[in-house]
Structure formats: structure tokens, C-alpha cells
Design a protein around this nucleic acid. Structure first.
Length: 859
RNA sequence: GGGCGUGUAGCUCAGCGGUAGAGCUCUCGGUUUACACCCGAGCGGUCGCAGGUUCGAUCCCUGUCACGCCCACCA
């Protein structure tokens, strides 16, 4: 026995149920994972929300979808493995900690044990306080722990049926160990490697970023038409980045472009800086763009990188990691006036350098006309606020290009909800243009677990990394020593150096299945839960989280990480715009849950199908609240009738009919939930439930009360009572995944155990022939009677003298069998049936004479 | 430029080969002891547009327009 039966209240209410049941579920361990064989387990790879602020309605929306499926599977007898995770790793946390505590990470500083927590909020206008990396990480952990508590509170209140004892984080010890172990193995397998290469670089965060984290933004710029020289000959090039002129290594036009064909193979000189550069042909040059001839710089964009690589051009990098022009003039720029010009740019930002170069071009007369303003898409790091530069640096990569075909195959094996989302994954995999860059020049993340020996000159041997043994993980090479070295050898010639980088968040969160399933640490659990059953996630992170998780599982175990993936849509505000904080239209989830009740908010969420963007709609929440309240009232009403006798059986056509219809609802809802069509399952169940309340309950009331003196013995009364309770039991369970609080409350009025661990209803009724239409016909009759009364503006209680029914003879017997219920529900004195040739039933309703006499309705 | 999705009642959406559906809104009516956080009835649509297939098309095909999203291009 896991709970106490609660009594049916005088006036059932939703208010307060959320808290009562959330607490009780925790106490009773209702959602605790109970280990079982793989076939009996349903494991869910929950997306760990980023803990850098607060949850919003979009989270509530998508996590509810997963919970509905989890609850359904649990009731179907599955041992549901449903953990929650927190993504506290990475840049969003760093940024938040910087602002919240007013600190900045300075890796060169020593660790200060027991450092006092900075004042919160920091004094206005105060300069950020520099703290060591380890102290910075401690502050990150401190702040995320607070946020995680707040998040958990919301999730419990929403009624997510997660097992909180399984909670993981993406920066906890276990996650770090898994992340580093996988990295070390990939390194040994040759699937992880480092390379010095041009990489996309965010100058604000001063870190490399991956292809998957890019986004295009409209950025204002201007076309500059500048002259290149060869003897007396001029060629005009149009560029939006004149500041890169000193980084120019070639001029490039399309091989078929006759305008420039005569120049291919010749050399021209850059204006101002006087550097000779070759004129080359390459098919990536587009004759229609600008002047048709491009200035290739190292590096202005990815096309420059392509040309540089394929045409084996020299590197003349001029932009440093801080986004400023580096002091060292590039090779090839060696003329007196060229160097003098370059000196004026050193230390300048890209923006300032551009102005200065333009001024110089004006000075030498090499700027043709005035710059013409333009707005064009420019690549940004999705979390950054300055355009990305391309900087050459040493970085770690995981091979993905080599596995493209295999990854496409995995995409085919995976079941997608909705199925068309597969196309996005395939587009992404086909469009990969490089391996996955996983190293980041940041602090709060899982460290790259390698050291490098230092040679006699103190230079690191990057191609001979010292890799830790797996049983020593996790390690932080910035504080731990490699085997065979002592700490005093750190950074000295002949000693060692730790890799200063951390791995990108996705490099760890892509291992969420391995982290939660106990990979390499709990063989039993791993066998029970991996590969997992379901990955729910947003469609916006197919190219990041979904892709990278598939890749990691492929590399680690040669399998898919899960069987199915369910993509949720966006929440749109009522103006059909995506809801976002910046627009100020975000409502806090807790306020909604309090205002409408958790069940009501869940109902709204359940109305959004997988992959479909859904409007934020408080009207839907009101309807959900109405449904939940109705369930309480209807349950109270049904349970108010005496229990059916032990010998009771369903004997009446109307009761049979209702139960037969309900059977069909069960069958459909079950199939739909198995297919993640929870919206359809809810709609189907809800529609039946309202017919059950509006028509069946009204029809059967009198019979269930038992009007005669010996009512309890009347089989018809017993039939009604039995049918009512049977239907109620099924309906409460069908609605349980959607409205866990109201259903649990109403279920507790007559059961000891939780509805959420009760078996999902099955189709069991032994329907009698022709009984299946009785309720439909009865509803039709009642509808006609109600319409007649409504048309003559009478109360529904108003007596009907005569109900005259015309129609096919086969309805005679059916009408007889339900006439008792009909006469009560419609307050009808007499029902007369006349067989006719008509295909349908026709009703003449004769109201009692107390004013305007006869009304009739035809249906 | 490529791909995907969506266009059905004022609103939110279901239906996807056989006489247009639900809820909300609106109008009218109802002190019916499960529920006024309620109940009943009604108004409301050439199913984006144009062709085609079919006995028959909202549903299938082709084209087209509009909106949204993803990807690519970014000299």
C-alpha cells in the first residue's frame, strides 16, 4: 500500500492539488526507476536544459510532451528510465557568473582556497575582479546549483514523472570522466586529432567555434572599389573588407571569365602596401559578383580558406585572437612605404583599421568612387555579438567527414517524429564542410585531458601528447601532473605543459546516453537502458545535439544512441512570432501553473503536436482547466452511486453501447500514443469524455439512482452502476498521462495505489450485436428534444407530451430498449415509433401545453 | 539558390477520395441537487489560387501564390 484513500470532497477543486500530489509522489517514490531487463525498460534521453537563467514556457511545452509519453509507457508496464539533466557546462554559465558576481577568469592567477563569495550584486560600475580558473569554476558551480534547485521545483510542480535520483549534470565528475574517457579512446583510435588550421574565431569570447554554432546575421557594410596595379595596367576589385588588403595573397577570377583571362599567371601589386600577388583562376570565383575578380585574403571568409588551401597560397594573417591587427607585419609586406602604412594599423580593431585603410586608399588615389553601403549576411557565433574572424590556431577535432555515409545510414535507421525532420539531419550531414572542432579557449568546461612535453627550448611537442590512463580520469591538466613528472616541472624546459583548452559543451552533452546509462561504470544498468528508446529535443538543435550524439554513439559503440527521436516545435506568441526574452513577452512558468493549474498548462502543451510550432494560448489553458475540473465533478458524481453488487452485470443496451464506444477510444488512443500522436489521443479521449458527461450521464442518472422501491435488486440499476464505474476507471486512466494531478486525485477517492502505476486500460468489453449504436441514437434523440425546447425557449426540464419518431423499422427494438432512459432524460410522457421508408430517423417533439404549444425538430 | 513544412468557420486547430468538423468567440435560452470554474441551442466556410486524374477531390497529381523554418551563398 503506497498511499491513503482520500475522501470525495463536497466541492472538488484543482487548487492545491499540484503541491499535494507532487509531494506525495516524491514520498512514495512513484516514479522511481526499478531495474528490469532491456525489453521491459523504456529509457529516455532527456535534454538537459541550460542552467543559465530561468525556464520559460517553451520548456514547459516540450518537456510535457515527453512526460506524457513516459507516463503512458509506465502504465503500459514499462520500467521507465527517465532522468533529468542540467546543462551547466559552457559559455552561458560563464557569462552569467561574470555578470552575477562581477568577476573575470584570469588563468594565470593562483587558486585562492576558501575565497569569499563576492558581493551580489556587484557594486555599480565596479571593475570585474580577476580570479583564478579554479575559483572561477567554483563560482560557476555555486551559481548553477542554485539555479538547478529552482528548475527542479518547476518541474515537480509541472508534474514531470522523472526519477530525481538519476539527475546528472554536464559538468559533474561523472560527466567529465565519461567525456574524457571517450576523448582518450577517440584519440587512441585516431578519431580525435589536433591540427593547426584556420578556424572560425569569436573575438569577443576569444575562442574557436564550430560550424554547428554559426548563424547568419544581417550586417551593415560597404562595397569599396579599389585598384590593383601591374605596370600601367589597373584592375578594380570590389570588396567589403578593405582592411584585409595587407593580408591579400592573390586575385582570383573564374577560369572562363574572358575579362581576366589575359591576366592569369601574371602578378599585380596591392595598392598602398605594394605587395605583389598572383592573378589566378578558380571555379569558386563568381563572375557576377562584384567586379568578378576577388581579392583572396588570409582570411576574410571560408572561400578564402578554400582558395588558400587548394591554390597553395601563402598565409598572411593580420588579425589576432583579440580581433586587433597584429604587430608583426605579414611575410611579403616588406617595402618601406608598405611597412609604414602597416604600422598605422597595428593594434587597431577591424573597424578602425578599415577606416584607416580607406583613408590611405584615398590618399593614393586607389579608391574608385565612394564606398556604397550594403547589408549582407555575415557569420556570427550564435552566442556572440561581433562577426567571426578566421584565425589560424591549433585545435582539437573529432572526425566526422570520414563517417558521413555511415551517419546518413543511422539517420535512416532512426524513427523520426515527425518523419519529415529526418531531412534536416540529412541536409546537415551532407553539408558538413569540416571535422568537428571541439576545443574551446575557455575555462568552465571539461578540460582536454592531455599534457605536452616541453623540449629544451621550452616549446611544447604537440605531436607527442601525454595521455592519462583511463583510471585516473577525470583530470585537469592545468592542476594535475602527468605520470613521471612533478609539479615543479610545469612550464619549464624539459618539463611539461597542460593543454590549456576545454572541450565544447556539445562534446560532453553528445554523450548524455553514455552518462546516464552508466557506460563503462555500471554494466548492468548500461545493458538495461542502452541504446535508449527515446530522444526528445527541439528541432533547432538537430545539427548540434542530435547529430553529435549520433556521431559519438557510432564512434563508441557502432550503434544508434536511441531508437526514436521526437522533435518539439516552438512556442509562438499570439502574433505568431517566436517567443523570446528580448521581446519581453515571456511569461514565467510558475505563474502560469499557479494561475491555471499544472494540468491546465499541460493540456495546452498536449495540444501541440510533435514538430509543430504552437501559439501560446491561455484560452487553451482555460479549456484544460475546465476539463480537469469536469473530471473531478464527474468522478464525484459516479462514485456517489452505491457500488454495484458483486453479481452485477451489464445488461442494458445503452450501457453496452457506451462501453463499446469506449473500447474503441482505448484502442485508438493506445495506438496513437505508441506513435507519439499524443495530441490525437487526447482529442479522442476528450471528445468521448464530454459525450459521456453530456449525454450518457444524463440518460442513465435515473436508472443508476434506482427509482423503484426495490431498486438495488433491479438488474438495470446494477447494469448502470457497473457501467458507470467501469467507464470512469478507464477514463481516469486514459487521461492520466495528460492530467496527472486531477486524475490522481479522483483515482485516490476509490483506490489505494497511484493511477500512474496502474495498468493502461485494454479493450475487454464483450460487445453485444447492434448495441454499439444505442448511445449514438440516444444522443440523437436527446439532441432533437433539447433543440425543440431551446427553439421554444423552454427549460430543458420542460415536459414533452409526445415524442413521435419516424424511421427505418430496424430502430423499433433499439428505441424500446432505451426508452426508459430517454423518457427520464427528456422528461417525455410518451414515445411513439412509426416505421417509414425514410433512411434516417425523424423526430416530432410535442411539448406540454403551457403557452406556445407544439414545437418540432427534424434531425 | 536548394530543402522541408503550413495555408479549412472571426480565432486556435482536427479531418486527408464519397452529403464540410471541434473548441473558443459571438447570439439566444436555462436557479436541471456532479459541475454557474455550469448546462442547452444557434449563427458562422465556394477547405489559398489555377489546371489535371476520378463517377466523385478539402483530401491524389502538376503548376502557382502567401507565410514559416532549415541549409547554402557571403570576394
Amino acid at each position: 500500500m503506497s498511499g491513503e484513500t482520500r475522501t470525495v470532497p463536497e466541492r472538488p477543486s484543482l487548487d492545491g492539488l499540484d503541491q499535494v500530489w507532487a509531494d506525495r509522489w516524491e514520498r512514495m517514490g512513484t516514479y522511481r526507476y526499478v531495474p528490469a531487463g532491456r525489453d521491459e525498460v523504456f529509457s529516455i534521453d532527456t535534454p538537459p536544459p541550460t542552467v543559465s537563467g530561468s525556464l520559460h514556457v517553451g520548456h514547459v511545452f516540450s518537456y510535457t510532451h515527453t512526460d506524457i509519453v513516459a507516463r503512458f509507457q509506465r502504465m503500459c508496464g514499462k520500467h521507465v528510465f527517465y532522468p533529468m539533466g542540467w546543462d551547466d557546462n559552457g559559455l552561458p554559465t560563464e557569462r552569467r557568473v561574470q555578470n552575477y558576481y562581477g568577476v573575470r577568469c584570469e588563468p594565470s592567477l593562483p587558486y585562492v582556497p576558501d575565497m569569499p563569495v563576492p558581493d551580489v550584486p556587484p557594486a555599480k560600475g565596479a571593475k570585474p575582479v580577476d580570479v583564478s580558473r579554479r575559483n572561477f569554476v567554483e563560482l560557476c558551480e555555486r551559481l548553477t546549483a542554485e539555479d538547478e534547485q529552482a528548475f527542479e521545483h518547476v518541474w515537480r510542480r509541472l508534474g514531470l514523472s522523472v526519477d530525481w535520483s538519476l539527475t546528472y549534470t554536464t559538468i559533474g565528475e561523472r560527466a567529465e570522466r565519461v567525456s574524457q574517457r571517450s576523448f582518450v579512446r577517440l584519440l587512441h583510435a585516431g578519431e580525435a586529432y589536433q591540427a593547426e588550421a584556420p578556424t572560425l574565431w569569436d573575438v569577443g569570447f576569444r575562442t574557436a567555434v564550430a560550424q554547428a554554432e554559426l548563424e547568419d546575421r544581417e550586417h551593415a557594410g560597404a562595397w569599396h572599389r579599389i585598384a590593383f596595379h601591374a605596370g600601367g595596367q589597373l584592375v578594380y576589385v570590389e570588396t567589403t573588407r578593405p582592411e584585409l588588403l595587407p593580408a591579400c595573397v592573390a586575385l582570383i577570377a573564374h577560369p572562363d571569365d574572358e575579362r581576366y583571362a589575359h591576366l592569369f599567371g601574371t602578378t599585380m601589386t596591392t595598392p598602398v602596401f605594394g605587395v605583389p600577388v598572383p592573378v589566378l583562376a578558380h571555379p569558386a570565383a563568381e563572375p557576377d559578383r562584384g567586379a568578378g575578380i576577388a581579392m583572396c585574403c588570409t582570411f576574410g571568409d571560408l572561400t578564402d580558406v578554400q582558395w588558400w588551401r587548394e591554390l597553395k597560397l601563402p598565409a598572411r594573417a593580420i588579425i589576432g585572437r583579440d580581433g586587433r591587427i597584429v604587430a608583426q607585419a605579414p611575410d611579403g609586406l616588406d617595402s618601406e612605404p608598405g611597412l609604414a602604412a602597416y604600422q598605422q594599423l597595428v593594434g587597431a580593431t577591424v573597424h578602425t583599421a578599415k577606416e584607416r585603410v580607406v583613408a590611405m586608399l584615398r590618399g593614393t588615389g586607389d579608391l574608385d568612387g565612394e564606398p556604397t553601403k550594403t547589408v549582407r549576411p555575415v557569420k556570427f557565433y550564435e552566442k556572440g555579438d561581433k562577426p567571426l574572424e578566421i584565425v589560424s590556431s591549433r585545435q582539437w577535432f573529432i572526425r566526422s567527414i570520414a563517417h558521413q555515409d555511415k551517419l546518413l545510414g543511422r539517420g535512416q535507421e532512426l524513427t523520426w517524429h515527425p518523419s519529415y525532420m529526418r531531412a534536416r539531419y540529412e541536409d546537415w550531414v551532407r553539408g558538413l564542410n569540416g571535422d568537428w572542432l571541439i576545443s574551446r579557449q575557455r575555462y568552465f568546461g571539461v578540460p582536454v585531458p592531455v599534457w605536452y612535453p616541453l623540449d629544451a627550448a621550452g616549446d611544447p611537442a604537440h605531436d607527442e601528447p601525454i595521455v592519462p590512463a583511463e583510471d585516473t580520469l577525470p583530470v585537469d591538466p592545468s592542476s594535475a601532473c602527468p605520470p613521471g613528472y612533478t609539479e615543479d616541472q610545469r612550464g619549464v624546459p624539459g618539463g611539461f605543459l597542460g593543454d590549456p583548452d576545454v572541450m565544447d559543451t556539445w562534446a560532453t552533452s553528445s554523450l548524455s546516453p553514455q552518462i546516464v546509462c552508466g557506460w563503462e561504470e555500471d554494466a548492468e544498468r548500461y545493458a538495461q537502458t542502452f541504446p535508449m528508446d527515446l530522444r526528445p529535443q527541439g528541432h533547432d538543435i538537430i545539427r548540434t545535439w542530435l547529430f553529435s550524439t549520433v556521431l559519438r554513439a557510432e564512434l563508441e559503440s557502432g550503434t544508434l544512441p536511441w531508437r526514436e527521436v521526437a522533435l518539439s516545435g516552438w512556442i509562438l506568441d499570439p502574433d505568431r512570432k517566436k517567443m523570446s526574452k528580448s521581446k519581453g513577452n515571456v511569461v514565467t512558468p510558475l505563474a502560469l501553473l499557479e494561475q491555471f493549474s499544472s494540468d491546465a498548462v499541460r493540456y495546452w502543451a498536449a495540444c501541440g503536436r510533435p514538430g509543430t510550432d504552437t501559439a501560446f494560448d491561455q484560452g487553451k489553458m482555460k479549456i484544460g482547466r475546465r476539463l480537469a475540473t469536469k473530471l473531478l465533478n464527474a468522478s464525484k458524481f459516479v462514485l456517489g452511486f452505491p457500488e454495484p453488487a458483486a453479481t452485477a452485470s451489464v445488461t442494458e443496451a445503452l450501457d453496452w453501447s457506451m462501453l463499446t464506444m469506449l473500447d474503441e477510444v482505448v484502442a485508438q488512443a493506445t495506438t496513437q500514443l505508441e506513435r507519439f500522436e499524443y495530441t490525437a489521443a487526447l482529442e479522442r479521449t476528450e471528445r468521448f469524455f464530454w459525450q459521456f458527461c453530456d449525454d450518457y450521464l444524463e440518460l442513465v442518472k435515473d436508472r443508476a439512482y434506482g427509482s423503484g422501491s426495490d431498486s438495488a435488486a433491479d438488474p438495470a440499476t446494477q447494469s448502470a452502476r457497473l457501467a458507470l464505474r467501469s467507464a470512469l476507471s478507464v477514463l481516469q486512466r486514459l487521461l492520466a498521462p495528460f492530467l496527472p494531478f486531477a486524475t490522481e486525485e479522483a483515482w485516490s477517492w476509490w483506490h489505494n495505489e497511484s493511477v500512474h502505476t496502474s495498468p493502461w486500460p485494454t479493450t475487454t468489453s464483450t460487445a453485444q450485436p447492434a448495441a454499439d449504436v444505442a448511445l449514438a441514437v440516444a444522443s440523437e434523440v436527446i439532441g432533437a428534444v433539447r433543440k425543440a425546447k431551446s427553439d421554444s425557449k423552454r427549460s430543458m426540464k420542460h415536459p414533452v407530451e409526445l415524442l413521435h419518431v419516424h424511421g427505418p423499422a430496424r430502430y423499433q427494438q433499439l428505441l424500446d430498449s432505451i426508452s426508459r432512459d430517454l423518457t427520464y432524460a427528456g422528461n417525455i410522457s410518451e414515445i411513439r415509433f412509426d416505421p417509414t421508408d425514410a433512411a434516417q430517423l425523424i423526430f416530432d417533439v410535442e411539448l406540454a401545453q403551457d403557452g406556445p404549444g407544439l414545437a418540432s425538430a427534424r434531425r
